[in-house]
Design a protein around this nucleic acid. Structure first.
Lengths: 113, 113
DNA sequence: TATAGTGCATCAGTGCCATAATACAGCGCG
DNA sequence: CGCGCTGTATTATGGCACTGATGCACTATA
């Protein structure tokens, strides 16, 4: 669902967010340059820049023009908390509604590992 | 999440599908006309027609030109089963991955209703 | 100063979405 | 038949999001 016709810059944004939360990009470390990530992902540098843009606005990455972008202090925890809130408040209720409609019991899916 | 910047014709398609599954539109019953639903939802008749189109192709609604569109026999069960499969195979794994990343325990979700 | 690496701004192209205005085709009913 | 209701086809238009190519501004380093 999240990997089909979704805009590239949103996919990249999710990838980056996941990497920061998981500590793949650690705080204080430099993120891959726009051009480097573009080449690696087969995307356009501008598209990558657009994905980074959102994190800049939220102060989760700090930009040093001419140098690169760095993961801000506390970015990982902030991101995780923010996404956690959003999931519980906005996504889960809808998911729950759909599951009820489709006759899927939440307990069945949450029971395993 | 499913109700924001999504194309109108897809929102309508989901609404109709939900109504059929829930039995709000019962099998053999006539669906709201293209023009009627358009007026009710403040959309364009062509956009509504586009939403209905998908169900025609799948044989879930039967068209009687000049009369109206009727919910096909077994449409409700077919729809529910189809969406159920899609949910379990495509959506749930991703949801589960996100939950793990965000540190959401199953107990957090089952607490309420 | 020269060079190469950063991010950023501008302009343009493309495609999807939604709408509008008509016109056409099939059915039911008085 | 005439009228009113159905769905459908056609064409045109405006808006918006996404993507892309190019060039500029800034910084570190030699």
């Amino acid at each position: 669902m999240s990997n089909q016709s979704k805009p590239v810059y949103l996919k990249l944004r999710d990838m980056i967010a996941a990497a920061i939360i998981d500590g793949q990009y650690r705080e204080g470390e430099m993120l891959p340059s726009v051009r480097a990530l573009a080449a690696e992902q087969g995307a356009n540098p501008l598209t990558v820049a657009k994905a980074y843009q959102q994190f800049q606005n939220d102060g989760l990455v700090e930009v040093q023009r001419g140098v690169g972008m760095y993961v801000a202090k506390g970015a990982s925890a902030t991101l995780r908390e923010r996404e956690r809130e959003a999931f519980l408040k906005e996504e889960w209720p809808e998911i729950r509604t759909r599951m009820d409609r489709l006759g899927i019991a939440p307990a069945d899916l949450l029971a395993d590992a």
